[in-house]
Each structure stands twice: as structure tokens, then as C-alpha cells.
Amino acid sequence: MNIFRLAGDMTHLASVLVLLLKIHTIKSCAGVSLKTQELYAIVFATRYLDIFTSFYSIYNTLMKLIFLGSSFSIVWYMRYHKTVRRTYDREQDTFRHWFLVLPCLLLALLIHEKFTFLEVLWTFSLYLEAVAILPQLVLLQRTRNIDNLTGQYVFLLGGYRGFYILNWIYRYLTEPHFVHWITWIAGLVQTLLYADFFYYYFQSWKNNKKLQLPA
């Protein structure tokens, strides 16, 4: 565990908890894409199947359980909570998220390190995570005005990506044989998807204005 990895995990954790806390306290999920949240629930469910087969550390297992629990809680709130579900921007959140799932599954069947059930699902989760933010970014563009919490959520997620890339560079330099092309390329694609959002986020922060994305 290096400092970049820890910072990445903590911003990732903060992003999910900020979102869950927002939904729980103000009983509103306005501006949040259910499609993206469902994709993340699928990402965690397929990636963390190894909690049953391998043990790395208490930290690792605990974090996996928190990510699984919080992502499924968010989906539950948005779909079934009687107050929260009414605040969901159903008409605006129209991204066909299944069109992301199938190509990712196909790609994982074709490009992977080992052809085993767990390994293919693990690879699938990497590909899916790379694009899972897309419905959320589309929703942000459509509603244009973003409340602070939704902006912070995407900002923290982007921070998590940035720290993970630093973590990979660090591990590549310090650990022998640390080469993971699939993880790196998927991670890089994911980080690039945030670049556009970050540009507008910093612009609004610099001008001390409410974040507005161009149509």
C-alpha cells in the first residue's frame, strides 16, 4: 500500500459516501443517474467475487464490503424508497446502459489474462467501470446546472482515478513484474472521460460561479 493508492481509495470511498449521505439526508436523488449507479453495482458485484476465494487483507475485504453495500444501497434508494424515487430525473436519464454492458462482456471474453470464470468477470468489471460514468455525464450535460454535491461526487471520482494512475506508476517503478496492461488501459480510458468534466469544474471554481456545462 502506497500513499497514492490510499489517497485513491479514500477519494473513491468519499465519493460514494457523499452520494449516499446526500440521498439519505435530503431524500433526493435529483441529478444522479440511476443508470450509472446500476453499472457501478454490477462492476463491484462482478469484481469482488474473489472475496470468497482469496484473502489479501482485512482492509481489502472491508473496503470491498463497503463498496458493495453502499452501491446497492444507492440503487435501492433510487428505485424503491418512496420519497427518493420521486425525485429521480427519469425522463432525462435515458442512456441505454445495456449497450455498454454487452460490448464490455464481449471484450472481456476476447481480451483477458486468463480464461477462467472469475478472471473474465474481473476483466469485464474493469471495462465496465471505464465507461460506467457516461450516463452520469450525459445527465449532467442535459440538466446543465449541477448542485454542489453531484459536482463533488464526480470530482471525487475523478480524483480517485488520478490517484490510481499515480499508484500504478509508483508500483511499476518499485515492484518487480508489476505490469497490468488491461488494468492500465481501462483505467486510462476512464480517467480521460473525466477530463472534459474537470475542465468545466475548474473553470467554474476559478470564476467562483455555479458549475454549468455547455449543451
Partner: peptide
């Protein structure tokens, strides 16, 4: 040789 350590990340 392929390292398995990438799987220790979240």
C-alpha cells in the same frame, strides 16, 4: 511470469 498483485487493488 505474470504477477497476480493487480488483484489486490480495489
Amino acid at each position: 511470469y505474470k504477477s497476480e498483485t493487480g488483484h489486490d487493488e480495489l
